[in-house]
Computed example of a mutant assay.
Amino acid sequence: MRHLLALVLSTLWATATLAQDYPLTVSHAFGETVIEAKPVRIASVGWANHEVPLALGIVPVGFARANWGDDDGDGLLPWVSARLEELGAEVPPLFDEGDGIDFEAVAATNPDVILAAYSGITRADYDTLSRIAPVIAYPHAAWTTTWREMIRQNAAGLGMADQGAALVADLEAQIATAVDKHPDLKGKRGMFVTHLDLRDLSTIGFYAAADQRVQFLEDLGMATPKAVQEASEVGKYSGRVSAERVDMFDDVDVVVTYGDQARLDELLKNPLIARFPAVARNSVVLLANDPMGTAANPTPLSIPYVLDDYLTQLASAATRTTP
């Protein structure tokens, strides 16, 4: 399947390269970006934007170092390493974004375009990057781009809109096939709690309806609880509510969050948290700082890598009725 897709995408790319009219224009939250000619040197900033050109057979000249889920410390997530190996490519320069965008490192790669469709860049960041090369920013708001929009937006900036659409369709087909194996999960209501923090038990943080972690749960057949929808602010990827209002989440079937069982056990000693039905019955998927935890925030290359394992964990949590 993957090799067939690669062949199809390669053919589409060759055709599109000949047929694409330039300049082309890509609209985004900061206005419009004009691409004067077919970009060859591709750089990216922010989370996983480099996976789009990699999935389409292009090795970027530089991209952000992985700072979450990198289990071997090489700055690459395993599905990125695997794809570079498939393409027979060396690891390009990795930008350290621990303290923000490294503009000098980006400029040093001399890119033709900078992909940032899924990111949190500010207007100032965008203006600075635009002095280096044309920038493909997010379509709506920071960190609210879905994996589909990430692919389509970045692919458009590469002059590969048709290939991006084909990639989306292929991933959707893979998801549908995997979801069919877990019919009992369909319609279960899933909530993604941002973290389990023992230092602050006064509030509950959650990813909002616009966040792609939440939307990925919907891709997997689940539903977003009404309380999460109502508590989500437009244009915001996360929110917080007082722990005293935990009863509002009584329709949640499964909670997904970052942490471990020991931390969850400590939280359950808090009388407010103990009133959270899904948590009390341990209908929880606990994600660690590892590839699985990273891939719950879906990206073009991570979806096939962890899809079956993630669905299995969600389905298991959905069937629990006791702690």
Score class of each variant (00 low, 15 high):
residue 107 A to S: 13
residue 88 G to D: 01
residue 266 E to Q: 15
residue 10 S to K: 15
residue 189 R to V: 05
residue 156 A to L: 04
residue 11 T to W: 09
residue 291 P to W: 03
residue 312 T to H: 11
residue 218 E to K: 15
residue 270 N to S: 12
residue 45 V to W: 00
residue 180 D to Y: 07
residue 309 D to E: 15
residue 13 W to E: 14
residue 208 A to C: 06
residue 119 S to A: 11
residue 167 L to T: 01
residue 125 D to S: 11
residue 182 H to S: 08
residue 266 E to P: 01
residue 243 A to P: 00
residue 108 A to W: 00
residue 208 A to G: 12
residue 222 M to I: 10
residue 27 S to W: 06
residue 136 I to S: 03
residue 125 D to V: 07
residue 5 L to K: 02
residue 61 V to D: 03
residue 146 T to V: 09
residue 108 A to Q: 07
residue 89 A to V: 08
residue 120 G to H: 07
residue 17 T to D: 14
residue 241 V to P: 00
residue 82 A to R: 15
residue 17 T to A: 14
residue 153 Q to I: 02
residue 18 L to N: 10
residue 270 N to P: 04
residue 77 L to R: 04
residue 184 D to Q: 15
residue 62 G to E: 02
residue 148 R to P: 03
residue 298 P to C: 08
residue 268 L to K: 12
residue 112 D to Y: 10
residue 42 I to H: 02
residue 100 G to Q: 08
residue 127 D to Y: 12
residue 121 I to A: 04
residue 240 R to H: 15
residue 51 E to L: 10
residue 304 P to E: 03
residue 260 D to N: 15
residue 172 E to H: 14
residue 48 A to C: 14
residue 12 L to S: 07
residue 28 H to I: 06
residue 208 A to I: 01
residue 258 Y to I: 06
residue 257 T to A: 09
residue 314 L to D: 00
residue 139 P to E: 05
residue 156 A to F: 06
residue 18 L to K: 12
